[in-house]
Design a protein around this nucleic acid. Sequence first.
DNA 1: TTAATTACCTACCAAGTCAATAGGTATTTG
DNA 2: CAAATACCTATTGACTTGGTAGGTAATTAA
Lengths: 134, 134
Amino acid sequence: MKISTRGRYAIRVMIDLAEHNDGGYTAMREVAERQQISLKYLERILPVLVSAKLIEGIQGKGGGYRLTRKPEEYSIGEILVLTEGDLAPVACLSCKGKSCDRKYICKTLPMWKELSLLINNFFNNKTIADLVNQ
Amino acid sequence: MKISTRGRYAIRVMIDLAEHNDGGYTAMREVAERQQISLKYLERILPVLVSAKLIEGIQGKGGGYRLTRKPEEYSIGEILVLTEGDLAPVACLSCKGKSCDRKYICKTLPMWKELSLLINNFFNNKTIADLVNQ
DNA sequence: TTAATTACCTACCAAGTCAATAGGTATTTG
DNA sequence: CAAATACCTATTGACTTGGTAGGTAATTAA
């Protein structure tokens, strides 16, 4: 029951980009240094954020990444779904998991659905801007 | 971000024991059959519930397990803590994890604490009795 | 007393995930 | 041309997951 470094690092990168958002591009080398995260590892996490158009990057000297929207327009939920794959607390509710043949009689399923809703609401109602301003 | 079969199966066993609670002992072979869970696997999950005195078992023919309290006196939280080890949604908040040296400057830590509280409250306010009666 | 049944115990295993590291290539700027 | 950057793919060691295998000890019914 843990959110992995992939998702947590992605959020920290987004916050860092929001904090240093002057219209230009921020090199991931700087972000990695400030956040004390391996640059090489970050480079493996970012592509999914780029292809989902949450950030955009340009190559070459002076290049880097920048946000494509305002910080308050990113929900934590969408970042985590991209990087973690799913926010379902149990396999039965994951879109990847196969349908369980006990779903109509399972006494625990309603509880998992309730929890899933709680967690999803929590993350969808929290934005990058909420985390920058504190 | 998933609760594993260990915790989920433990809860289902507790519910099953509560449903067939006539004062006597219920053989795990029956529970495994009803719940469609491998008996051998269940036998590996149960010892922690026994040593924490959530259930008690007696050996030999006619033996089995039974609850030591009333169903409404078991919170889902305590069952999951025993079987999953921890309910912290991130390593930084786990009792097992080492202390993070960014904890005083981390912009995300307050959010993880908030989520952790939400999840713990959810599980601590839900009992086995809540799941049996529906 | 014996056979059946049960909890209880330990070792093992295959597959997958996690958290990186390594070693590049392509692109752009000064 | 050199430096800096994003971008790409393969590999790896440690760990977790979800079991299986093969027993032993205790108890009861026949």
